[in-house]
């Protein structure tokens, strides 16, 4: 069929317009698909980075834990033994000097005894044995007793809910976070009252450490290594780390971790 000029013109124009629309559609599709692919790629990259960071942190924690174990064993088996032996030697001395000299030897025996006790406490605190055999609550009780003994602090442990045994690593990480927090309080907060709260819920465990110290401005960019480590450790447990502090109003650290497959504590 022959077309007139006008008809042909319109047909050509329609072809041109349709072609342009199809081509533009094709370009839009390419951009959209590429964007989609890019998003997936960056998501995977991010996951990989997080996983790498976790592995790195895990290795660091393992090394740290191993070092703690070594020091703890060294204190217990070597230094502790030597001091005990020294104390034994002093105790078995037949003293025939003046009263003053006898008194000095007795003082030395007492001091060695105290050193043995302190070292023993330090060794137990560094060792993960207490967590492995008795669980988190006993570990925290031991830590609290240690600090209460100094007479400088009034520490309380509150356990709410029905306690469950967590994975040993998780309990150890929480224990180390608490130690780090207590260490920070002793070094910087100037607090005299510390409350450690363990809240066991259906699927979460919340650990809160609150002090009545001087507090500080919570600028995340100025977090010290201690706080950053605590946050990273909490992240390792898929947990959430929160810090609330105001100048003059104390500090509160809250860590919430999910509890998977809980075992009832016997």
């Amino acid at each position: 069929m022959l077309y007139t000029n006008s008809e042909r013109t319109i047909i050509f124009l329609i072809i041109a317009i349709l072609l342009t629309i199809i081509l533009v559609g094709f370009i839009i599709l390419i951009v959209y698909k590429y964007q989609q692919r890019q998003n997936i790629y960056f998501q995977n990259l991010e996951k990989l980075q997080i996983s790498h960071e976790f592995d790195l942190l895990k290795s660091r924690l393992e090394i740290q834990e191993q070092t703690f174990q070594n020091i703890s064993r060294e204190i217990h088996d070597n230094i502790g033994q030597k001091l005990t032996l020294a104390k034994l030697h002093l105790n078995t001395l037949v003293l025939c000097g003046t009263t003053h000299e006898v008194q000095r030897v007795n003082d030395a025996v007492t001091m060695i005894g105290e050193a043995i006790n302190d070292l023993s406490d330090l060794s137990r605190s560094m060792s993960s044995e207490i967590i492995l055999s008795n669980g988190l609550i006993k570990g925290l009780e031991f830590e609290i007793n240690q600090l209460n003994k100094t007479g400088l602090y009034n520490l309380k442990l509150l356990v709410v809910g029905e306690p469950v045994f967590l994975d040993t690593n998780a309990e150890l990480i929480l224990f180390r976070i608490t130690q780090e927090a207590l260490n920070n309080i002793m070094k910087h907060a100037g607090a005299n009252s510390i409350i450690i709260n363990l809240l066991y819920e259906h699927c979460n465990l919340t650990l809160t450490i609150t002090d009545n110290g001087r507090g500080f401005l919570t600028d995340k960019h100025q977090f010290g290594n201690g706080l950053i480590n605590m946050e990273k450790r909490a992240t390792m447990l898929n947990g959430k780390f929160e810090l609330h502090s105001k100048e003059g109003e104390g500090t509160s650290i809250k860590i919430t971790i999910p509890i998977y497959e809980p075992e009832k504590k016997v």
Binding site: N5, R8, T9, F12, I15, A16, L19, T20, L23, V24, I27
Partner: peptide, 25 residues
């Protein structure tokens, strides 16, 4: 891609039907 793809059909028509298409086309 856009420019050349739009041109191809019309250039092809000119190339193959040069003597049959009108001046207006």
């Amino acid at each position: 891609f856009l420019s050349m793809s739009i041109q191809i059909p019309f250039r092809s028509i000119i190339a193959n039907l040069q003597n049959t298409i009108s001046i207006s086309d």
